[in-house]
């Protein structure tokens, strides 16, 4: 627990949780932000106002929130993937800035050169992904390597899917990180499908974390719908990294509850599989626990949820009021200087 610097509060009395009541509220609020961000983006897509792909993270809230929450956002660094919107909130990203970046409007940190969550915000220690899966994992390792050369331990948290985990760069980065004991945490978000391709056609090992053994690093597979389990597992990984024990590989099992992006009707996913995972919805199950443990009342949760959705929609509306970036931006900054 010592390695996080989150809000402190009295421990939740009716629970075996490691977390204080305030921390649990915070986790839920971040998960609701991720969930309602999706709801709002989906609404935008259906209105025909979204531009480019809308990649839902529905069902992934516990992974991105629980893992990022285990880091110290003032000293560690986040390399999120496209379904890790929750982690941006945990790292303190301003909602309006995030929306402007996503929707590529004037004021975007990418000036319109790119959109979605691909931005970087060095002040908030967030470095987004590129569309080539796995490419940013060696980059995340290198960010921590730089501080390692300076004698500083900076934990780098990054993600890959069950599909992207088959990219060669992932192997190279994990092996390299393990050899040099780089404080890297890679979460393999196994959400069962890589676009339309099921696990059975992606890999033949039982657990993707089994690969950790081959790299000489710690590895584990956990339920990715349990935010506190994700948090506790990542916290241990952070502590190992701070002790100089190198990288960790954590496979989280979840279900991608929508298509690859919203254009995809995911009719290739068996309905009963979706129904089975729906019963393990990470947000709903956590709400049940929170209410059961007396951390919040059902009414408080409902109110928080409504406020969160309204906040998301208002932020989208503000972003959409902004102009598209000026065309001249397209000709600028190919180089830092030339």
């Amino acid at each position: 627990m010592k390695s996080t610097q989150r809000s402190s509060g009295k421990p939740a009395s009716k629970s075996t949780s490691l977390l204080t009541a305030d921390q649990r509220k915070e986790l839920l609020s971040y998960m609701l932000m991720a969930r309602e961000f999706d709801t709002a983006m989906l609404r935008l897509y259906r209105q025909g106002k979204a531009f480019g792909g809308v990649y839902s993270q529905l069902g992934n809230e516990a992974v991105s929130v629980g893992s990022a929450y285990a880091l110290d956002r003032d000293r560690d660094v986040l390399f999120p993937m496209h379904r890790n919107i929750g982690s941006h909130f945990v790292f303190g990203q301003d909602l309006d800035q995030l929306m402007v970046n996503h929707l590529a409007r004037e004021g975007s940190q990418m000036r319109g050169t790119d959109g979605t969550g691909h931005y970087a915000d060095p002040a908030r220690r967030i470095y987004g992904n590129v569309s080539h899966l796995g490419a940013m994992i060696p980059v995340a390792a290198g960010f921590s390597l730089a501080d390692q050369l300076r004698g500083i331990t900076t934990v780098s948290l990054t993600f890959i899917g069950d599909g992207g985990a088959q990219v060669g760069e992932v192997h190279e980065a994990l092996n390299f990180a393990s050899v040099h004991k780089i404080p890297l945490i890679l979460i393999i978000e196994n959400n069962q499908y890589a676009y339309s391709t099921p696990n059975s056609l992606e890999f033949a090992c039982e657990r993707l974390s089994d690969r950790a053994l081959g790299y000489g690093m710690y590895g584990t597979t956990i339920d990715g719908t349990d935010v506190e389990l994700v948090y506790a597992t990542c916290l241990e990984a952070v502590e190992r990294a701070r002790r100089g024990e190198g990288p960790s590989l954590i496979e989280t099992r979840t279900m991608r509850m929508r298509g690859h992006a919203e254009h995809d009707d995911f009719s290739y996913v068996p309905k009963d599989l979706l129904e089975e995972w729906a019963t393990k919805d990470p947000v709903e199950t956590y709400i049940t626990r929170i209410v059961r443990d007396g951390v919040m009342t059902a009414d408080e949760v409902k109110a928080l949820r409504e406020t969160t959705l309204a906040t998301m929609i208002a932020s989208i509306d503000r972003a959409l009021e902004r102009a598209w970036p000026a065309p001249e931006e397209g000709f600028k900054n190919v180089f830092m200087s030339i």
């Binding site: 970087a120 060095p122 470095y127 490419a135 940013m136 994992i137 060696p138 980059v139 995340a140 390792a141 290198g142 960010f143 921590s144 390597l145 730089a146 501080d147 050369l149 900076t154 780098s156 060669g168 760069e169 190279e172 980065a173 092996n175 390299f176």
Partner: peptide
């Protein structure tokens, strides 16, 4: 890829 990628990451830092 790991060599160049980690150098890029170190550059960003």
């Amino acid at each position: 890829a790991a060599i160049i990628g980690s150098a890029i990451g170190a550059s960003l830092n």
